[in-house]
Nucleic acid binder design. Sequence first.
DNA 1: TTAATAGTTCACAAATATATGAACTATTGT
DNA 2: ACAATAGTTCATATATTTGTGAACTATTAA
Lengths: 106, 106
Amino acid sequence: MDKKKIFELHADVCKALGHPLRIEVIDLLQEKELCFTDILEVTGGTKSNLSQHLSVMTKKGILKMRREGQCNYYSLSSLKVAQACRLMREVLIDNLTKHKELLEKM
Amino acid sequence: MDKKKIFELHADVCKALGHPLRIEVIDLLQEKELCFTDILEVTGGTKSNLSQHLSVMTKKGILKMRREGQCNYYSLSSLKVAQACRLMREVLIDNLTKHKELLEKM
DNA sequence: TTAATAGTTCACAAATATATGAACTATTGT
DNA sequence: ACAATAGTTCATATATTTGTGAACTATTAA
């Protein structure tokens, strides 16, 4: 496959991590699957907005959805998503720490 | 710190991964630091566009820049960025593989 | 069959991200 | 001092993402 095409697909999957609400959802789903209403209760906001974000994440293959009765259960498609997300969180924390140290030296 | 604020900052760092050109740059910098012109030679496109992407990545703390003479050398700020990027690539590949298998069963 | 619960889908307005070319700055060589 | 190299910055047009409310669908309960 063409390299540029891979970069596009790769970036597209990564885009799923690029929104606060989606990060919050990934965080929530680390331990266990949750149904839509449970997620909404924690994240807040409108049903419509959450539904669309979950839909995007599912289409990009980073979430799985399972219907049971009237409830839709969401879970991470892979442990790798959670790992990648944690690594990027560490990058953030490292950066914040460096900033703090710089400020303290001034 | 407020949870929602953390999600915002976290998502903001992750956004750095959400563009084909930026993925290509991270890929390139896995082995060694490169100067602007070297990167441009591989990625193609305009100087202006690359410069702005590198600037965004540096501001978000996922790249480091070092000036030497007239050349600007870029490198990954941390191994964690490369690891996270690789994990997301694997998620993509796993998804493509699953899709392929489904198609073959039809 | 009617109502309630649990979501999804759609259209559209507003906000953000991206690409481009032109102008600019900084360093080095002549 | 002047030109060349190596990039950065800025203004702006375009494209993409995001959020909202209203309408819709599917399942369960009364």
